[in-house]
């Protein structure tokens, strides 16, 4: 497991890390995260100074630039409250990637402190708040793409637990389900040909099962897969897991 040791009872006062992708493109995912957390009686604060987790530069190999952003992140999310992120990728950056690039830095303890209380949203709901069944209903057929940054973390299983318990939601397995979608952050623009080929493969495998929705816990994957689908005129609705959770509550009349 790549996850660090965390407080098993993190409490319900949480800080939201919205992610730069939701900040720029996918505001409804951040909205849904707040609505879902508040439905679970969490008190959500949104530190206004937040920007990005530092991953783009980390993956590009520019660790010096990345550390600058991580330091800003550590300052922004100060305190002891759990930090909840609607992205397996950004979460893994905080609790794994950042530790790697701070190995020889004197402020490693501060980075580790943040790492120890950072949760991907599905992991937080299932393993932090001990919610194993999701109420409401969502009558549809969906393909779930487990994003790669949740490998070796609890997030993949947690997401499945939640989605599989939703009334009416049918999760369809599809071919080569464990394969990467080809997004990979900066990889998507430094290796545009391979990245697109991987995306088409993933999309093709998923579409074979005729799902109405393509669901993932990372908007990076969906930005990429949705972008290919739109370009190729394929009809599939892309949704973040947390949007499905929120819509399930709405459909069940549990939230407005």
């Amino acid at each position: 497991m790549i996850a660090v040791d965390r407080d098993p009872s993190p409490g319900k006062k949480v800080q939201l890390m919205a992610t730069c992708l939701c900040d720029s493109f996918f505001d409804d995912v951040a909205v849904a995260t707040v609505e879902v957390l508040e439905y679970l009686k969490c008190e959500v604060t949104f530190p206004e100074e937040q920007t990005c987790c530092g991953q783009p530069a980390f993956n590009a190999g520019d660790w010096k630039s990345s550390r600058k952003v991580v330091r800003h992140c550590v300052k922004t999310f100060a305190g002891d409250e759990p930090v909840v992120v609607p992205s397996g990728s950004c979460a893994a950056m905080v609790f794994h990637g950042a530790l790697l690039e701070f190995e020889e830095e004197s402020d490693l303890p501060e980075v580790r402190q943040l790492a120890g209380r950072t949760w991907e949203i599905a992991d937080f709901i299932v393993n932090g708040l001990r919610v194993a069944e999701w109420p409401g209903k969502f009558p549809a057929k969906a393909a779930f793409h487990r994003s790669c940054h949740t490998r070796e973390t609890n997030s993949g299983a947690a997401t499945r637990t939640l989605l599989e318990s939703i009334d009416g939601l049918e999760l369809v397995p599809f071919g080569e389900g464990e394969q990467c979608c080809g997004f990979g952050g900066t990889f998507s623009v430094t290796f545009p040909n391979i990245s697109a080929a991987m995306g088409k493969l993933k999309l093709g495998n998923a579409l074979k099962e005729n799902p109405e929705y393509l669901v993932s816990g990372d908007m990076g994957c969906l930005l990429h897969l949705g972008g290919i689908a739109t370009r190729e005129g394929k009809t599939i609705k892309t949704r973040h897991v947390v949007q499905i959770l929120r819509d399930s509550l709405r459909n069940g009349g549990l939230i407005p």
Binding site: G54, A57, N59, G61, S65, S66, K68, V69, T186, V189
Partner: peptide, 27 residues
Amino acid sequence: RDKAKHEGIKSPGTPPMGGWAYLASQP
């Protein structure tokens, strides 16, 4: 990747990150 960057080896297609890092540390 960090080693390559450290040694100043050019990486075709990799977007420069310095400007982005400035942006992302100035709220």
